[in-house]
Computed example of a mutant assay.
Amino acid sequence: MHSLSKKARVAGFFYLLVILIAPLRLVYIPSKLFVDGNAAATINNIAAHEMLFRLGIVGDLLTASASLVLTFMLYRLFKEVNKSWALLMLMMGFMDTPLYFFNSLTDMGTLILAQGPDFLAAFDQAQRTGLATLLLKMHNLMTFASEIFWGLWLFPLAALVYRCGFLPRFLAVWLTINGVAYLALSGAGLLRPEYNELVANLAFPCQLGEVAFALWILVLGAKQRQPAALRGAAVA
C-alpha cells in the first residue's frame, strides 16, 4: 500500500473509532438514564444501571485515548503540506484528551454518590443527590466548553486538506462548516442554553463533515495528484 494512503487509512480508522464511541456518553446514556427536571430519578437510574454508566466512563477514556492517537496520525499525514498548520491542528486536537479525562472524573464522583457507600453516611439522600447533580451539570458545561476545541482544530485541518492535493477540496469546505457548527453549539450551551435544541438541530447536518472526512480517508485513502503541467505532458 502506498505510504500516503496507509497513513490516511490509519488516521481514518482512529477518526471513525472516536465518532463511534463518543456518542455513548454524549447521547445514548443521557437519553436512557437522565430525566429532565427530576434529579432524584436521574440518580436512581444511574444507581440502578450502574454498569451502563460505567461503560460511559470507559467510553470517554477510550475516546480520549483514540483522539490523542488520531491527532498525531493526522499530523504525520499533513506535516509535509504545512508544518505550522499541522502543529496548530495537533495542539488544538490534543486539548480534546484532557477535557475528556476531566469529564470522566466528574462521572466517577457521580457514580460514587449514586451508590451511597457507608463513608458518605454523613450526607443524607437529598445532599448526595444535590452533589451528584452538581457534578453532572459540570460535566454538561465542560462538554460545551470542549466544543470550542472540537471546532477550532477543524480549521487548520480544513486548510491542510484544501492545500494538500491528495484529498478533494469539498471535504475542506465541509470541515470548515463543521467547525463553525461546533462553535455555535458551544456558544449556545455556555451563553444561551434556551437555544440548545434549535442550534443542535441546525448543526446536525453540518457535523456530518467529520464523518465524510473519516470515511473518505479510511476507505479511499489518499492519492497524490500530478500537477496540471505533468498531466498535460503525459497526455501528449
Rank of each mutant, 00 (worst) to 15 (best):
F78S: 09
V81D: 04
P98W: 05
M73F: 15
Y75L: 06
M92E: 06
M91K: 04
S84C: 02
F72W: 13
M95N: 05
M73C: 13
F53D: 06
F94Q: 02
L90D: 06
S67H: 11
L55R: 04
I57R: 03
R76Y: 06
V81K: 00
I57W: 03
L61V: 12
L68Q: 06
L61R: 03
D60M: 15
Y75R: 07
F94P: 01
L77P: 05
L55T: 09
K83Y: 05
T71H: 15
K83S: 08
L74T: 06
W85T: 07
L61F: 12
L68W: 13
M73K: 15
R54F: 08
M95I: 14
M73T: 14
M91F: 14
F72R: 07
W85V: 00
R54M: 09
A66E: 02
L74H: 08
A64T: 01
T63E: 02
W85N: 12
F78N: 07
M91P: 00
T97I: 04
L61S: 09
F78Y: 10
V58E: 08
D60I: 10
A86L: 08
T71K: 13
G59C: 02
L77H: 09
L62G: 02
T71F: 15
G93F: 02
L70T: 08
L55S: 11
L52S: 07
N82G: 08
K79I: 00
A64M: 07
K83F: 00
L70K: 01
E80R: 10
T97C: 12
T71R: 14
G59A: 15
K83H: 12
T71P: 07
T63M: 09
L68T: 10
A64D: 01
L62W: 06
D96W: 13
L55V: 12
D96R: 13
M73G: 03
G93D: 01
S84K: 14
D60Y: 04
L70F: 07
A64I: 01
E80G: 08
D60S: 12
S67K: 03
L74A: 10
N82A: 10
M89S: 12
L61M: 15
T97F: 09
M89E: 14
V69A: 14
P98Q: 04
A86E: 11
R54V: 05
M95T: 07
K83Q: 12
A66Y: 00
M91I: 12
T63R: 02
Y75N: 07
M91H: 08
L70W: 00
M89I: 09
L68F: 13
S67F: 07
L68N: 03
G59E: 04
L52R: 00
I57V: 13
V81W: 05
F53C: 05
G93K: 01
R76N: 13
D96K: 11
F94V: 03
T63I: 05
